[in-house]
C-alpha cells in the first residue's frame, strides 16, 4: 500500500489530469521568483570589486548551468525507472527533459561566452568546465537524435535509456579527464556545504533566481510532458473523450 504514491505515476491519465494544476502553480511561482531575483540581482545588488557590472550575468549563467547538469541526472533517474519499473511516463519525462536540458546547456554556454569576453578576454577557451559543458550538450543532442531515428516510441525510449545510462557512468570520467587537461574556470562560488564566497546582498538574489529557474524548468518539462502524453495516448478512450468534449 505504501507504494501507491509511486505506482500512480504508471497511469498517463492520472498524470495528465493533475499536471495542469502543477504546471499552473509552477508557472506563477517561477514568474514571481524570477522577477524578484532578476530585478534585485540586476538592479540593486552591489557591483563587484573586480569585474564591475559584468559579473551580473551570474544571475542567468549560474542557475542555467546548475540546471543543465541537474536535468541530466534527472534524465538518468528516469532511465533507471524505465528499465526497472517499465513505466511509460518515465520515458515521456526523458524525452521532455532531453530537449529542456539541451536548451539550458546551450543557454549556459552562450551566457558563459558573453561573460568570458570581458573577464577572460575571449569568448571561448578550451577550459575544463567549458569543454565538459560542450560535451554535455552533445550528449543531450545524442539522446534527442537517437529518439528521432526510431518510429516505435517504446523502442526509441529504451535505446535512449541505454545511451543515457552509459553516458552517466562516463560523465565523471569525462569531467576528471577534461579537468586534468585544462582548468581556467574559477571554483564554484555557491556550494551546499560551505559558506558562500560572496556577501548576502549578492547571493540571496542568486539563490532566488536558482530556485526560480528550477521551477521554470519544471514548468517547461511538465508542459512538454503533457503534450507528449496526449500524442502517445491518442488512441486511448480518455484522450478521445477529452479532445471531442473540448
Amino acid at each position: 500500500m505504501g507504494w501507491r504514491w509511486f505506482h500512480q505515476w504508471g497511469s498517463p491519465r492520472w498524470f495528465y489530469e493533475r499536471a495542469r494544476r502543477w504546471q499552473l502553480v509552477c508557472g506563477w511561482l517561477a514568474l514571481i521568483l524570477l522577477t524578484l531575483g532578476s530585478l534585485w540581482g540586476l538592479g540593486f545588488a552591489p557591483v563587484d570589486y573586480q569585474q564591475g557590472n559584468s559579473y551580473r550575468i551570474i544571475y542567468l549563467h549560474v542557475p542555467v548551468a546548475f540546471l543543465a547538469q541537474a536535468l541530466y541526472a534527472a534524465m538518468a533517474v528516469c532511465a533507471i525507472v524505465l528499465f526497472v519499473w517499465k513505466m511509460k511516463l518515465a520515458d515521456v519525462a526523458m524525452q521532455s527533459i532531453a530537449v529542456a536540458g539541451f536548451a539550458f546547456t546551450a543557454l549556459s554556454l552562450i551566457s558563459g561566452a558573453v561573460w568570458g569576453k570581458p573577464t577572460w578576454g575571449t569568448y571561448w577557451v578550451w577550459d575544463a568546465r567549458l569543454t565538459s559543458m560542450l560535451i554535455l550538450a552533445f550528449l543531450y543532442l545524442g539522446a534527442i537524435g537517437l529518439r528521432a531515428a526510431f518510429q516505435d516510441p517504446d523502442q526509441a525510449g529504451k535505446a535512449c535509456g541505454i545511451l543515457i545510462l552509459v553516458g552517466v557512468v562516463n560523465l565523471p570520467i569525462i569531467k576528471y579527464s577534461v579537468e586534468w587537461w585544462n582548468t581556467l574556470h574559477q571554483p564554484a562560488s555557491l556550494k551546499l556545504t560551505e559558506k558562500p564566497t560572496m556577501p548576502a546582498s549578492m547571493w540571496i538574489p542568486l539563490l532566488i533566481n536558482i530556485l526560480g529557474y528550477y521551477i521554470a524548468a519544471a514548468y517547461l518539462v511538465l508542459g512538454s510532458m503533457r503534450a507528449t502524453v496526449l500524442e502517445r495516448e491518442r488512441r486511448a478512450i480518455w484522450v478521445r473523450e477529452l479532445v471531442n468534449g473540448a
Binding site: G142, Q151, G167, I174
Partner: peptide, 21 residues
C-alpha cells in the same frame, strides 16, 4: 541504431562525446 531505418551516421555521432577521455 540497429532497428532504426534512418540511422546512417547517427550511431557514431551519439557515441563521439564518450571518446573524450
Amino acid at each position: 541504431t540497429l532497428g532504426s531505418s534512418r540511422s546512417g551516421i547517427l550511431g557514431v555521432l551519439v557515441m563521439m562525446p564518450l571518446f573524450v577521455p
